[in-house]
């Protein structure tokens, strides 16, 4: 697609690709909520397992591309886990046995578990988002949110239009950098670099505003601001799959929370 990463798209029809995005998001939010509300590693571990099953069996996503997609996440998780463990209040509790000690630093069991829990939580959130969003294209997501959740349509479709031109803006960003390099700019110390980055950002934003104005004019020429209620070319049908997805999502979340640890 562009300088930006290609989106992960389903490669085959599957259960989740036939579910409306709103239903997937609803089910996903239940997981998100449970993951955020718990502090031990067991609950996110259960959700993670469930998520992997859904991913493999029902998502239709190309499994081989998923790890690459979650890679940036793993870096962030690693940093988060390390610091959560090191800076855990449990380490200050002298009643707890020391697991590892390096110089003045000391790590206790609960600190390690707490850190792991945070890491798993972030992983679960990442996977859940993937399952909620990736099985349909952004247009269907917008359609679904407008039709089912009554999101304001002018805002939703403008956002969609703006997302569509993201690759062009990435191209502009590269062009601005190239042009400035050809004018002998770039390089130098940190201060020059910061000033250069700011100037480059400004040029990009100028070009973005102009793009937006052209787009808005073209959209108005096609009646975007007609004031009439918008109708829908693609009517999303809510069926048993949607209800099943929401019910199953909530059920798994509850089970993960209440099953004995």
């Amino acid at each position: 697609m562009s300088l930006l990463p290609a989106p992960l798209e389903p490669v085959r029809p599957a259960f989740l690709t036939r579910v409306t995005p709103a239903a997937r998001l609803a089910g996903g939010f239940a997981w998100l909520l449970v993951a955020i509300l718990t502090l031990d590693p067991v609950v996110p571990l259960r959700l993670l397992a469930a998520g992997l099953v859904v991913l493999v069996l029902w998502s239709g996503l190309p499994l081989r591309r998923v790890p690459a997609r979650l890679a940036p996440l793993s870096l962030a998780i690693a940093g988060l886990v390390v610091f959560s463990v090191l800076l855990s209040p449990a380490n200050a509790d002298l009643d707890l046995p020391t697991l590892v000690a390096v110089g003045p630093l000391r790590v206790t069991g609960p600190a390690l578990l707490g850190g792991l829990a945070i890491g798993l939580r972030v992983l679960v959130i990442g996977l859940t988002s993937l399952l909620a969003v990736a099985p349909s294209d952004p247009t269907s997501v917008a359609d679904s949110l407008v039709q089912q959740w009554r999101l304001p349509d002018r805002f939703a479709y403008s956002t969609l239009a703006a997302l569509r031109i993201a690759p062009f803006m990435a191209g502009d960003w590269a062009t601005v950098g190239a042009a400035r390099r050809l004018r002998g700019l770039g390089g130098g110390g940190p201060r020059e670099r910061a000033a250069e980055a700011g100037a480059r950002l400004l040029v990009l934003l100028v070009s973005a505003v102009r793009r937006a104005e052209r787009m808005a004019l073209a959209m108005d020429a096609r009646g975007f601001d007609s004031g009439l209620p918008r109708s829908h070319y693609r009517l999303l049908q809510v069926g048993w799959r949607d209800w099943l997805t929401i019910a199953a999502g909530v059920a798994v979340a509850v089970l993960a929370l209440v099953l004995p640890r």
């Binding site: 403008s158 703006a162 997302l163 031109i165 803006m169 990435a170 960003w173 104005e213 787009m215 808005a216």
Partner: peptide, 19 residues
């Protein structure tokens, strides 16, 4: 909100995200 207001906010936010 005029169309241009909505689109400019959306496009600028996307531009920031891309950068």
């Amino acid at each position: 909100w005029r169309t241009v207001d909505i689109v400019v906010v959306a496009v600028l936010s996307v531009a920031f995200g891309v950068v």
